[in-house]
Design a protein around this nucleic acid. Structure first.
Lengths: 335, 335
DNA sequence: TTGAAAGCGTTACCAC
DNA sequence: GTGGTAACGCTTTCAA
């Protein structure tokens, strides 16, 4: 592999100075058309590739927007990512993605790594972080965005919604349709913080309604998948037969649950109502369709993209924005 | 927010030279323990964050591994990404991800953008590219890896499998179980190149077996989802009733198809066999379970990680490796 | 064990 | 319309 071609090489080839090359390769109007053509030709000929690293270094602007997601294999987070990319399409910002696997210690490691790339801004999924992460974020040289959550104590800007309130809608809907004995199926402990918030929302709402205590079923460590949902239902079949309604942390889990319940001869929604979360595609195609909550994952991405742009354009520190979206209940055949 | 803290600032604070800071912050043994402690303290105090951009610039090594994926919301590509990340955990390489949305023109734009970051190597999902992309890749200053495919004319290294051959397994399995009149449900045209390869595999295998021509049903532009699969079956219901077997481009599509067929009173596999592709979770939990092909998405990631490392360690150009994996058929209740 | 200098590729700024 | 100079933060190399 031959040494890289630099603007110097192009300049030599075109018989101009490096400075002119730099100008010619941009849309800088102050360059003679003939000169520009010569430079472009030379660059083409030599296979010149622009060096963003040098540019980032020189300008002290990386052009990166760092983003952490708990998982990439999740239609909701993928939708946010996609909408964000689209919302930033007309900018120079490039996404620098890190996946935390739902672990705060991995998030810390990632944030450290991402910040070393000097991103213009950083986006974190979730409002819970380790102490060290918070400290890193606070000393960060640019805005911080927390999404998909309603942080108690936001670091900076927020685009999210209340996972707990979303669950209240589910509980109220189930109560209205006469369900009384609730179970909640999610991941173990608090590893999935948004899942933990949902669980809290269920417990609180049930208490407010004066209904019996919720049976909390812990499937496995986050992320909890279709298969994990199915296995958990097999494992907890006895507990579940006592219930009126099984509230699942997500649609895939609900789908896995319904799949096993049906196989076990338990009728959904006849014997038990089952609900999901997230308005995944499978919710609308499962049989029965699954009652769920649409949190507007793509809207989070779109709004986030807008907000990032406006905050970065306002070069001075802007006061923190907290944009809270309202999820909507989608009634399906499963309840 | 205040100007960035550099090694110079840390050096001043600790009363040493920048050079000593640089050494102290690494595991360089040649620094006095006391000096190192002082430097670390100073760095901590000032909230110093290492600047990877400057390091990358100075060393002319970005530490990036550029990766393009057609989609992020796809369990298979996500599995490859995850396995790759894991396989590279003990290295300094950082993934720089770009999503093409199954479009070659977007791939070209992305490759241009990614190469400007001077990655150590680049990984492309798929073996089809625009002419311009190929040219960019050939002049790239580092190894190129194509995955998830069996390119006709590989740019460099490959870790993949034959999408067409995988389909042959499906067709033979269906033929063995007495199916004769096949349909294929996939995306329109060749936008999804791996999908197009699968279609080709079906057509060829059916021809080899001397069976009637395949009815090709085009649902929509790639990516084709569960919902798109369902809608296509509604639209093509009449054609589908004439068939013995419906071969779908992926498991989600097959799931959507089965969902609608069941609703229409068409029995699967009684009236028609349905098959998928990719061994998605839904295949094992759908009712009936879906006959599919496991392509070893995570294995691609793991092997790729190993290969990337070994190629980068061998500093001279290594001869192109072509690692072809063998998919396995998974018989489900849908056939 | 520590320090000084030089330079990676690009571009803002100032000359011409 | 074009060119020279300097600087961004870090580390290799050489010197003390």
């Amino acid at each position: 592999m031959r040494g890289r071609v630099t603007m110097r090489d192009v300049a030599r080839q075109a018989g101009v100075s490096p400075m002119t090359v730099s100008r010619a390769l941009k849309q800088d109007g102050s360059v003679n058309a003939a000169t520009r053509a010569a430079v472009r030709d030379a660059a083409e000929q030599l296979g010149y590739v622009y060096d963003s690293t040098a540019q980032a270094f020189r300008a002290q602007r990386s052009g990166f927007l760092a983003v952490t997601l708990p998982s990439i294999n999740n239609a909701n987070f993928a939708a946010t990512h996609r909408a964000l990319t689209r919302s930033l399409a007309n900018t120079e910002l490039q996404l620098l993605l890190g996946v935390t696997n739902y672990r705060l210690d991995e998030e810390e490691r990632l944030v450290r790594q991402l910040l070393a790339r000097r991103p213009e801004a950083i986006v974190l999924t979730g409002g819970h972080h380790t102490e060290a992460t918070r400290k890193l974020l606070q000393s960060m040289d640019g805005p911080v965005f927390e999404i998909w959550d309603q942080p108690h104590d936001p670091v900076d800007h927020v685009v999210g919604f209340s996972n707990a309130d979303a669950m209240t809608m589910i509980v109220e809907h189930l109560a209205e349709t006469g369900r009384k004995k609730f179970g909640y199926l999610g991941a173990i402990g608090d590893s999935d913080r948004r899942g933990a918030e949902r669980r809290r929302g269920v417990l609180d709402a049930v208490k407010v309604l004066g209904l019996p205590d919720v049976t909390v079923l812990e499937a496995c460590e986050a992320p909890i998948s279709m298969t994990a949902g199915a296995q958990a239902v097999e494992r907890f079949a006895r507990d579940i037969r006592e219930l009126d309604a099984l509230i699942c942390v997500s649609d895939p889990v609900a789908f896995g649950a319904i799949s096993v319940l049906t196989r076990l001869g338990v009728s959904v929604p006849g014997d038990i109502a089952v609900t999901g979360f997230g308005a995944f595609e499978v919710a609308g195609l499962s049989n029965p369709t699954i009652t769920t909550v649409d949190v507007g994952a793509d809207r989070i991405g779109t709004e986030l993209g807008r907000l990032v742009q406006s905050v970065l354009e306002a070069d001075r520190d802007s006061t923190p924005i907290n944009l809270q979206l309202t999820p909507t209940l989608i009634r399906g055949g499963s309840s």
